[in-house]
């Protein structure tokens, strides 16, 4: 531990502790708690049973009651630690009447003891309520939502990469009449977020019969101006001589795009691909409008619908929130530096 702190605290320059150093590490540790804390709390909570979730104040770790199978009883009985004038001992509860519990000693099942519930605490151990994760997939439609989300994410990303890169290729490597007009149109649409055209877009989607269809979610999002800009900017750095060499090599324009420019744009395509995956996975407002039948819900919409029900089943919702979070966290863990340099370089989000 001290080696970890020595590593984290070692400053490259300076010897004593300046007040700015104090502020720095204060802020950083505050950051760790505030930024990571909530997600960590979510994960811990997602493993708690409904009864535990209702507890206040909450425990940090998920617990489950120890149970024991006692002779003469069909179901396993929960164990409690009882402390009264007779000393401290572990008993199993048979039933509870008012403030009095009827309990048995697991070793001596014949004798019922009456214990005031104020004199006992549940005997618990750290345990994970995996059922929170299993049930939504079995009893609810989460498998379906997950499938829908994956479909939307994958298809939208593939279409985005293909159409954006084709357009970026035309806009970066060809001189043609109207190129500036096209660029200007693309630029102008940077100003029109989806939230401004919700109503007419909805009517178009309905008119072409894509309401309640995953394609209705996918299509309006794939022609991103940001993607075109990002790819075009990258393609501009590819020397024209390469394309000319390919033309001399008897390559068609399509081959030049597919075999020369596209492979060389791979780093930018990767960045756009990662972002597209995150965007489409996280999309909420538009799917919320287009999808009104449960069979076509994406994870985000499904999750919000469950959380909006009168009888909120937090134990399931927390677990499914974690599931929804997992792909993004994986992307983050593996591609963190790739993403952060991507944002710093382009201001893309």
């Amino acid at each position: 531990m001290s080696r970890v702190s020595a590593f984290l605290f070692r400053r490259r320059g300076g010897k004593g502790w300046h007040w700015t150093d104090v502020v720095t590490f204060g802020w950083l540790f505050f950051g760790v708690i505030v930024m990571f804390g909530p997600a960590l709390w979510l994960i811990m909570s997602s493993f708690k049973s409904p009864a535990q979730l209702a507890e206040f104040p909450p425990t940090a770790l998920p617990y489950e009651s120890r149970t024991v199978v006692v002779e003469g009883y069909d179901k396993p009985l929960p164990l409690f630690i009882v402390t009264d004038e007779a000393g401290t001992r572990t008993l199993a509860e048979v039933r509870r009447v008012g403030t009095t519990a009827q309990m048995v000693d697991p070793a001596n099942s014949g004798e019922i003891q009456r214990v005031n519930i104020a004199n006992r605490v549940p005997d618990r151990q750290v345990g994970f309520a995996w059922d929170n994760y299993v049930q939504p997939f079995l009893a609810f439609d989460f498998m379906l939502y997950l499938k829908n989300s994956v479909f939307v994410t994958v298809v939208a990303t593939l279409i985005t990469l293909l159409t954006n890169s084709m357009a970026a290729f035309a806009l970066s490597k060809y001189e043609f009449r109207g190129r500036n007009a096209v660029m200007l149109t693309v630029l102008a649409t940077l100003m029109i977020p989806l939230s401004v055209i919700l109503v007419p877009l909805y009517s178009i989607i309905s008119a072409v019969g894509l309401f309640n269809s995953l394609w209705g979610v996918i299509l309006p999002t794939v022609a991103t101006p940001t993607g075109i800009f990002l790819l075009r900017q990258y393609m501009l750095t590819i020397p024209d001589e390469l394309l000319e060499a390919a033309r001399m090599d008897h390559a068609s324009e399509w081959q030049i795009y597919w075999r020369i420019v596209l492979p060389l744009t791979a780093p930018a395509l990767a960045v756009l691909g990662i972002f597209s995956v995150v965007w489409r996975w996280n999309d909420f407002l538009w799917p919320l409008i287009v999808l009104s039948r449960k069979e076509v819900y994406t994870l985000q919409v499904g999750l919000n619908t469950y959380a909006g029900e009168l009888n909120v089943q937090w134990h399931f919702i927390l677990a499914m929130t974690v599931v929804t979070m997992i792909p993004v966290v994986i992307v983050f863990l593996f591609l963190q530096r790739f993403i952060t340099t991507g944002i710093a370089g382009s201001g893309l989000k």
């Binding site: 930024m35 909530p38 997600a39 929804t324 993004v328 952060t340």
Partner: peptide, 21 residues
């Protein structure tokens, strides 16, 4: 990474995390 981490989370996840807290 500590400060950047929540940026990628979906708004629904963010909303639910904080609703819970």
């Amino acid at each position: 990474a500590v400060f950047f981490f929540p940026v990628l989370l979906s708004p629904v996840v963010v909303g639910l995390i904080w609703r819970w807290i």
